[in-house]
Amino acid sequence: MNASNFVEGVDFTLYLILGIAVFFLIGITFTMIYFLIRFSKKRSPVATNIEGHLGLEILWTVIPTILVVIMFYYGWTGYKPMLTAPEGAMEIEATGQMWKWSFKYPDGKVSDSLVLPLDKPVKLNLKSPDVLHSLYIPAFRLKHDVVPGGNNSMWFIPQKHGSYDILCAEYCGQLHSYMLSTVSVVGEDEYAAWLKSSPDLSNEHPGLTLLKKNACISCHTTDGTRLVGPSFKGLMGRQENVLIDGNEQTITVDRDFITQSITEPNAAITVSYQSNLMTPYKDILSEEDINKIIDYIQTLK
């Protein structure tokens, strides 16, 4: 059984075209080499001017035309079913943002990897709050661009138990190649159990959980390394040069400043970092969440 319902159509077309391609590549190359030997200056001291041959021209126009129409046809029949998801497919909201995937299930469960029941059609509604991404599952032979402001979707039926890579195929900035996740295809019971379970977070600071869940740590590290945003380590109480309305000022980072940086990140940008890169979290995080995050940042000395 193939990993998804589209593998057959894609692979058949791929091998059909590759077969024709290899045939022509080998045929033309060998003819070329044969002519080079047979009609070399030594064996063929006098050339013959042959200006053309109408029959041959027709032949090598018509045959490629027929072949490309066949290739187009199979490409189309493999592609057509990808366009429309069947009624009743399970809808999951898949969000790609710099540089993390997250998946929101119908019952509200949010996970950074996909777990899916075998043989059930799934429709992923693709969202991005920042730039273009592309959700790519090579084993399923499927990808679709995630366009900010758009409403693209993709669907498939997982047909084989296993764990498969999810990659980002559309270049999205610094950590594009680290925007990885997995899809695990499991039995019905295992799926139901997974859906009910919640990860054991008793030992994790709730602020860190929020930072992970909202993809904050894709850009702001907790260990002092510089990515596209300032690190959280030692942030509280630090003196920073920031740009406010184009004027450079020195401020001391406190609770109010961090709150503002989360809700309206472009109001004050630390010098040497880029504005307009971060999504405002005003409507995404509650005041309570923000306080938990700040509590956690305070612990990163």
């Binding site: 589209f6 159509g9 894609v10 077309t13 791929l14 075209i17 290739m71 187009f72 199979y74 490409g75 189309w76 029949t77 493999g78 592609y79 990808m82 090579p138 032979r141 499927l142 990808k143 679709h144």
Partner: peptide, 9 residues
């Protein structure tokens, strides 16, 4: 890559 289904992959 011109064939639709394969291009998706």
């Amino acid at each position: 890559v011109g064939a639709l289904a394969v291009d998706v992959h």
